[in-house]
Design a protein around this nucleic acid. Structure first.
Length: 264
DNA sequence: ATGCCGGGTGGAACCCGA
């Protein structure tokens, strides 16, 4: 079973790219972020025609997450517990299963950016959201299921995850408190799928549209799949589809995927 | 470069992203 995440930066503008990538990579479950549309504007029929069930948690103009799945959804929930009056659509959770067994729980997340860090609300919102995510994951880990928490974390975990880490030292994606909060989530017992298979530098998932970042390979790794122990033990392989960044009208992020040893 | 590009909306010298 292949599970992927991709911040598409507008699903409507990126529909052709997304369908082309689905045909090429053949993922079974896909978490999409920054769909930037409301539920009724989501191009549901196009994905259904490609063989996917669709779960959407949309929002006008900003944010918005969705999950595509070849298997039907046993459960779909939207919003992170403890969201309160937070109306930003950044979290969706699904469960899929094969008839003969093989349950997988997938959380799709679009973690707040947090910049600028001295803003009275932006960075505290990011840290509070990360604390809520940690609490929710801790609760879900008690289920002892294969769980994948996939999405745009807006966190550069380590200096090796940026081409020029010195550019990011005062940025909300790389501040010590951000990295500590990400480590605290990992320390619940989650495995970073990419880092389970490679210690290499230069594994980036985002290149800014500006300043020739792509041409200079000035990238960062901020899109992650974190696996519960039960999922990590099934991990067979991972990939970052860097070539998608060179397509016409690209997103600034590229897809990341992990293969689990579960028949799809 | 506290916005260089590129989304959104609405018709903005607007908002937002990382």
């Amino acid at each position: 079973m292949r599970i992927a995440t991709w911040n598409v930066n507008s699903v409507r503008l990126r529909l052709d790219n997304t369908l082309a990538w689905l045909a090429e990579r053949q993922p079974d479950v896909v978490c999409l972020q920054e769909i930037k549309c409301q539920d009724d504007q989501f191009p549901r029929e196009a994905f259904e025609a490609a063989g996917y069930n669709v779960a959407v948690h949309g929002q006008k103009s900003y944010n918005g997450v969705a999950v595509l799945s070849r298997l039907p959804f046993d459960e779909v929930t939207t919003g992170l517990p403890g969201d309160g009056d937070d109306v930003q659509s950044r979290f969706i959770e699904v469960v899929v299963s094969r008839p003969g067994g093989g349950v997988v729980r997938v959380c799709g997340i679009y973690l707040p950016n947090g910049n600028p860090p001295d803003d009275p609300t932006k960075y505290p919102y990011k840290l509070a959201w990360m604390a809520r995510l940690k609490a929710h994951i801790a609760a879900r880990l008690e289920l002892e299921e294969p769980l994948i928490v996939a999405g745009d974390y807006n966190v550069i975990p380590e200096p090796e995850d940026a081409a020029h880490p010195e550019m990011w030292v005062r940025d909300a994606l790389f501040l010590p408190r951000t990295r500590a909060a990400f480590r605290a989530i990992e320390n619940l017992g989650l495995t970073d799928a990419v880092r389970a298979s490679s210690d290499a530098a230069g594994l980036y998932t985002f290149w800014d549209y500006q300043a020739g970042a792509w041409q200079k390979n000035n990238g960062i790794r901020i899109d992650h799949l974190l696996l519960s122990p039960q999922a990590a033990d099934l991990l067979k392989g991972v990939g970052i589809d860097k070539h998608v960044r060179s397509w016409e009208k690209p997103s600034d992020h590229v897809p990341v995927w992990a293969d689990l040893d579960i028949a799809a």
